[in-house]
């Protein structure tokens, strides 16, 4: 399969992720969508790596996976802490800071 098929999938997943971030209300779902985005980028990197014939992309992806995991941990920690205070993770309600 050509490079562009992978890119296509990556972009589709990316778009779905973006769509999710915009539409979803649950904090957890939004975090999942962010994972989708990072994942699509990883897919890109790996696809390019294979296409370009060097492994830099894979190295990059490796870093990226590690970082994504860490990020997820932080994100969920924040969500849990917030839930403890506010009793909700519905982001529509988390808007004391505005204007």
């Amino acid at each position: 399969m050509g490079l562009y098929s992978y890119l296509l999938i990556s972009i589709i997943i990316f778009t779905i992720g973006v769509y999710g971030i915009i539409t979803q209300r649950s904090g957890i779902k939004i975090l999942m969508c962010i994972e989708l985005l990072l994942n699509s980028a990883n897919l890109n990197l790996v696809a390019f790596s294979s296409y370009n014939g060097n492994s830099t992309g894979q190295v990059f992806a490796l870093f990226s996976i590690a970082i994504a995991a860490a990020e997820a941990a932080i994100g969920f920690a924040i969500l849990v802490a917030l839930f403890r205070l506010r009793d909700t993770i519905n982001l529509d309600n988390i808007n004391i800071l505005r204007w």
Binding site: M1, I9, V46, S50, Q58, A61, I65, A66
Partner: peptide
């Protein structure tokens, strides 16, 4: 898909970590 791209190591890391 990673496997298909011959990035086996990364595929495993993906499964493990994610």
């Amino acid at each position: 898909l990673f496997l298909l791209l011959q990035a086996e190591f990364l595929a495993w890391v993906q499964v493990l970590v994610y």
